[in-house]
C-alpha cells in the first residue's frame, strides 16, 4: 500500500482553508495532518519533519507566505525544509519568481483550478520542477531580477568537482545561447547533483540564484 502524502495547510482565511481542505481530502492519496492560519508559532509545528508537503497561502496571519517559508528554511536548514506549494489568488510572475528563488517547489493560483493544486502537491512530493528551463529563462528575462552576488555560492561553485562543473558549463552554454528549443529540451533533473552540492532546495532555485550572481550569462 502506497504511503499517504501528509499535507499541512496554512491560510489566514478559515473559509478558504475549509474549501481547500475538501479539495485535498477528496484525493485519497493525500491526508491533511495540520492546518492553521499561519502564525509564527506554526513554524515549530511544521518543522518537526512529519509533514511531506506544506501548502501555504501567500496571505498568512503572520505575513507573506514566501517570508514564512524563508523563516522555516532559516529554522531547519535549506535542505531539511519541507517541500512547499505556494497558493495565491492570481498568477503573478513576480511572486512566482520570488517563490522559486526561495526554494518553493510549486506555485498555484486560484485561477489554475483545483486539479492544478492537487498536481502541485504530488509534484512537490516527488521533487518535480514547477517550470522547464525555457519557462524559467522567459520568466527571469521578463522580471529582470537585480544582480546579487552570493559569495557563499561563488565559493562553492569554484570548488565543484569536475563532473558537476561540466554540468554547470552545459547549463551556462544553453542559457547563454538562449535557443528556445535547447532550453526546452534541457532536463532540470540533470542538475540534481549540483542541487545536492550547493545551498539550494530545487533546480529552479539553483538556476535563479546562479543567474542573480552572474554565473549563467558570464557577466
Amino acid at each position: 500500500m502506497k504511503q499517504l502524502v501528509r499535507v499541512a495547510l496554512l491560510d489566514s482565511d478559515s473559509d478558504v482553508r475549509f474549501g481547500r481542505k475538501m479539495i485535498i481530502s477528496s484525493n485519497p492519496k493525500f491526508e491533511i495532518v495540520f492546518e492553521s492560519d499561519g502564525l509564527s508559532e506554526d513554524l515549530v509545528a511544521v518543522a518537526d519533519g512529519l509533514i511531506d508537503v506544506l501548502v501555504i497561502n501567500q496571505r498568512l496571519a503572520s505575513g507573506a507566505g514566501v517570508s514564512f517559508y524563508q523563516s522555516l528554511r532559516s529554522l531547519v536548514g535549506i535542505k531539511q525544509a519541507t517541500a512547499c506549494v505556494l497558493t495565491s489568488a492570481f498568477d503573478q510572475p513576480t511572486l512566482l519568481l520570488a517563490a522559486l528563488e526561495e526554494g518553493v517547489s510549486q506555485v498555484v493560483s486560484l485561477e489554475q483550478g483545483p486539479e492544478a493544486l492537487m498536481n502541485a502537491i504530488a509534484a512537490a512530493k516527488t521533487g518535480d520542477q514547477a517550470l522547464s528551463l525555457g519557462e524559467l529563462y522567459s520568466l527571469v528575462l521578463a522580471e529582470t531580477p537585480s544582480r546579487e552576488l552570493n559569495q557563499d555560492l561563488l565559493r562553492l561553485v569554484g570548488d565543484l568537482p569536475q563532473k558537476l562543473e561540466s554540468n554547470l558549463r552545459r547549463l551556462q552554454s544553453v542559457w547563454k545561447k538562449g535557443d528556445a528549443a535547447e532550453l526546452e529540451n534541457f532536463e532540470l533533473k540533470s542538475l540534481t547533483g549540483l542541487v545536492d552540492k550547493l545551498p539550494v532546495k530545487t533546480a529552479s532555485e539553483l538556476v535563479i540564484r546562479l543567474q542573480r550572481s552572474g554565473l549563467l550569462d558570464g557577466e
Binding site: 473559509d15 475549509f18 474549501g19 481547500r20 475538501m22 481530502s25 489568488a89 486560484l110 483550478g113 483545483p114
Partner: peptide, 25 residues
C-alpha cells in the same frame, strides 16, 4: 474582496469534489 471571492471559489470547488463522497459536506 479578493479573499472572499477566493473563498467562494475554493468552497464551490471543494463542494464539487466533496459531493461525490459526502452530500452533507
Amino acid at each position: 474582496v479578493v479573499q472572499r471571492i477566493s473563498s467562494v471559489i475554493t468552497n464551490a470547488e471543494g463542494g464539487l469534489y466533496a459531493a461525490k463522497a459526502s452530500p452533507e459536506a
